[in-house]
Nucleic acid binder design. Sequence first.
RNA 1: AGACACCCCCUUCA
DNA 2: TGAAGGGGGTGTCT
Lengths: 259, 259
Amino acid sequence: MADKTDSNPIASIYTDGACSGNPGPGGWGTVVCYSDGTIEELGGAAGATTNNRMEMQAAIAGLEFYSQRASGDAIKLYTDSEYVKNGITKWIKGWKSKGWKTAAGKPVLNQDLWEELDRLNQKQIQWEYVRGHAGNPGNERCDQIARAFSLGQSIQLRKGTQLEGNVTVTKPTTPKSTTYMETPAMATDLDSILKPLTIAQEISTQGFLITTQEVAVITGLTAATITSRGEQWHWRNWEVSRVREEGGQILWQLERSEV
Amino acid sequence: MADKTDSNPIASIYTDGACSGNPGPGGWGTVVCYSDGTIEELGGAAGATTNNRMEMQAAIAGLEFYSQRASGDAIKLYTDSEYVKNGITKWIKGWKSKGWKTAAGKPVLNQDLWEELDRLNQKQIQWEYVRGHAGNPGNERCDQIARAFSLGQSIQLRKGTQLEGNVTVTKPTTPKSTTYMETPAMATDLDSILKPLTIAQEISTQGFLITTQEVAVITGLTAATITSRGEQWHWRNWEVSRVREEGGQILWQLERSEV
RNA sequence: AGACACCCCCUUCA
DNA sequence: TGAAGGGGGTGTCT
């Protein structure tokens, strides 16, 4: 059942991706809806990418956020991409059994993100398709976030507020306090700025080994990005080193670097 | 050499086929290019058929037109179907010497059209493959014609005009003399006349529910036509009734009507 | 196993 | 209006 330490479980998650040009600069947006009706928004941008990758990225962010909270509640994850929904719920089985070949015998594209999505996927996640631009408030808001990021515009990510039923009015919200996010990362308030840093610090001082997934959660990077960076790389104040593999999982170590 | 009664010989012929559903209602388009740069267009529709039959039909129409003019000029015939090009230039020799058996020992399909194509074929015909949807104006225009016919839409076939390099502009130019061709195309033998009827009868007696696409295949109507006919309508000996929707698909029932 | 074409669907853009 | 990123499927042959 649900983790009892959490009195306000996640009820549903909305995701959407956008891409300015396809391929082109992209953005993604995710809205986490809690049982009490409040919401929390995530979003990010990416360089040259495709619409479908952004749709996937939005879902990955939602699932990472979900798994991070460790509340095993059953939730619905809404996407307006049949590509994402069918891919994770139907096609991926065939892909894995056929060595990541498409029905036409060609390699499945975006395999890196598919594998990440698959790893994050759980029984509790109920994938739902919502028609895009059909007035669904959650989806509209995600679209707004994703599009803003894809255009390099600033947008205020909200937390703890209510989702407005009337989305069409949602103007380029308050271009003041630019909570702009550079890349796949999330920082919606002061706490969430400090939190990953202190955690990283603790891990580093304790010498803990952590998995790729955990590195992803802390850094806000995708697992694909992490593994592609090689044996040793920098993140903020830390040097991230690949230590070894264990049970199919890569283990990493953080060490405070001098800068 | 060239027939001297003709001062404006044919230079090349483009052909293409389309099929709405495959199998399903089909269409074909052919563009004849003269030496002086003017063109003449042919096109036609067919009921339940396949993409490959339509590709062949387009070539047959082009060759019939060519042989009719009796100008023995060497021409190039462009098709985007390797099936057609390889079939007529390579495979057909083996088929004829092996009694119309495929390399796998199975009967060669569409033998009727292959024989017709073979009869029309000449030394002067130089078969050329062009990649489909690659911007080739002649191929692009054929595609447009073929698709229009396959969808049951009307399209203005042109004659004497220039082929526009910019195909996307292709306006309904010269809405006079509609060289529209009804083209029976499919009912080549008794079996193909009877078959849809017996199938319709079986479906009606068994009370089976069938999809719009299946109705299209049986009746030779386009899906657009079918859905536009409303809840209940007549086809041949049957009353076609829209029963319900299921998984985004409309289900229909056939009932034998008195008439 | 390969190739070409045809179709259906969704999304993202211009 | 038209184009790209993506999937599933059929028509056909070697």
